[in-house]
Amino acid sequence: MSDVVLKVEDLETGYGEVQILWGVSLEAKKGKLTTIIGSNGSGKTTLLRAITGVVPVWKGRVLFKGEDITHLPAHRRADMGLVMVPEGRMLFPEMTVYENLEMGAYTKRARAKLKESLDFVLNLFPRLKERLNQKAGTMSGGEQQMVALGRGLMACPELLILDEPSLGLAPKLVLDVFSVIKKLKDEGITMLLVEQNVHISLMITDWAYVMAEGRIVMEGSGEELEKSEEVKKAYLGV
């Protein structure tokens, strides 16, 4: 039990009358990188919304650090260390880079470590150092992704959820993002990654789930899944 940070049990949810998730179960273990892959419309984003609390759960449970958080409001989940780096980055565009990072450390437990976290983030992204007073909305996509990742790290996450961090980035920047994820993994940060870049994701992940039509259809280590004929056919285009 103790090494499972996030446990999702038979989760069902959707929007209005439309059911999207049909009983999803998964686990994210402490210090490990867990990845969810799946094509567009497979329910990955909805799953993350249910886990972070911005979409209500119909059935099933979400357990975080052993506590049932299924019906906790989103901000309370962030308080507990469940931190989301959302798709499309969602920075505060009129705030400076520094203020964005500061907002990352908004919760009480993160505020106490603000200085340390800032050093850690600026070490990871030295380029942000000279950009601290620039408005986040005026930066390029790659730089914004750094700020988004940095903002997530400022929260002292017990689980860092990364929703499509490489989406819309140039190939060179995609590699940068993945090398950062690799670094964070080596630092021992527990992560849940949702990605469309199946090949690279499977290369660095400890454990992966494949989603299709609102269900988990397959799971295994990165290596196993990469060898699997079905995954190859469906996602790697081989």
Binding site: A74, M103, G104
Partner: peptide
């Protein structure tokens, strides 16, 4: 100010 710019992101910040 954060809520005025992106309310969902503000929720994620706690």
């Amino acid at each position: 100010r954060a809520v005025s710019m992106n309310i969902t992101a503000a929720k994620f910040m706690g």
